[in-house]
């Protein structure tokens, strides 16, 4: 993860170039079609997966995927590797907890508030960090998110955050989150549509942004920031916007996570959480939008099945080494490469 690494980790847009604007439009429409189909197909999941525990894992994977695609968006389009997105995820979660439990807000409003809080943190952190790159960026995002963690566990913060005990969410029985009472919201089968719709919508938005002119500008900044400035482009503004956008997506994940689990633990802001998300995204692959999602589901699965004796990190570590050494570009990146090779071989 040096300053020049991104182009190795993030496979460049090796996909077929769409030279004509018409080809571009067609590509966009096909993509949107796939997004709608995925969204609708995903809604059927609770009817297929009837086991509550499995369903809860899928919901967890979906919500953590929001965090991961936020991280992946920055890595793919700006070559910036962030350890700070856990802070937005966590800040949003605490925002929801505080708004419902301390202030008696309705869960729906509280989720909106949580997203605003998380995004607000992204603005503040973004102003401080987007000028840096590579290692400096990594360390700054880590430092700032750890500062937030330290704040959240202060004894003086106990009334708000519950400090090390974490925060249990409670709100009136007649209050609902988009029609779901607290009991139902914690039922993964019933909560699933919200998580799934949020993920597919955010993924689609990020995909569209990546394809837009703004996405090209980000690509230019990633490839050669100095030449961008010498070509008349502002490079600070676009980086800040991209950072805040990816932070907002992570915030939505955190807000929904808090509502769904009904409890916010300070671990959510911890170094391990941020590291795990980053590793999951890296294992899945930054080069494609779905990479971080694949990695996150794999991580959640591993967490549930290989966590015997607290050895989860032994497995994530092995997965990381395997991917970094043998599959640059992650699982999805390698599959993509394989696909291209097979197609070329056939021709």
């Amino acid at each position: 993860m040096t300053t020049t690494a991104p182009t190795d980790v993030v496979s460049p847009s090796a996909a077929a170039p769409e030279a004509s604007p018409r080809g571009r439009l067609k590509g966009t429409l096909v993509g949107l079609g796939i997004a709608v189909a995925t969204l609708l197909a995903g809604l059927a999941v609770p009817y297929v997966v009837t086991d509550t525990y499995r369903m809860s894992l899928l919901v967890e994977g979906t919500l953590l995927s929001l965090l991961a695609i936020g991280i992946g968006f920055l890595a793919r389009h700006l070559g910036l590797i962030s350890l700070g997105h856990g802070a937005f995820f966590g800040a949003a979660a605490y925002g929801v907890g505080i708004a419902t439990t301390n202030w008696g807000w309705s869960p729906t409003t509280a989720v909106g508030f949580g997203v605003v809080v998380g995004t607000g943190f992204a603005v503040v952190m973004g102003l401080l960090v987007v000028r840096s790159s590579g290692f400096g960026f990594l360390m700054l995002t880590l430092a700032l998110s750890q500062a937030l963690y330290a704040l959240s566990v202060q004894t003086s913060a106990r009334p708000l955050t519950g400090a090390h005990d974490g925060k249990l969410l409670s709100y009136d029985r007649d209050m609902t989150f988009l029609g779901l009472a607290q009991r139902d919201v914690m039922n993964p089968g019933l909560f699933w549509p919200m998580a799934w719709i949020a993920l597919t919508m955010c993924a689609t938005v990020l995909w569209l942004v990546g394809r837009s002119r703004f996405g090209t500008t980000l690509e230019g900044i990633r490839e050669n920031e100095e030449r961008m400035r010498f070509s008349g482009y502002d490079t600070f503004g676009p980086r800040l916007v991209a950072f805040v956008l990816s932070g907002a997506v992570a915030s939505l994940g955190g807000a929904l996570f808090a509502i769904n689990s009904g409890y916010v633990s300070p671990d959510i802001l911890g170094f391990t959480r941020a590291g795990d998300s980053l590793i999951a995204a890296l294992v899945g692959g930054f080069g494609l939008l779905v990479g971080p999602i694949v990695g996150t589901f794999l991580f959640v699965y591993a967490q549930a099945n290989f966590n015997f004796g607290g050895n989860l990190h032994l497995f994530t570590g092995m997965a990381l080494i395997l991917v970094l050494v043998f599959m640059p570009g992650g699982i999805t990146g390698s599959l993509q490469k394989l696909y291209h090779r097979l197609r070329r071989g056939r021709r």
Partner: peptide, 10 residues
Amino acid sequence: SVFGAMTVGD
């Protein structure tokens, strides 16, 4: 000083 991963046209 060019934009390595982008196409020349882009």
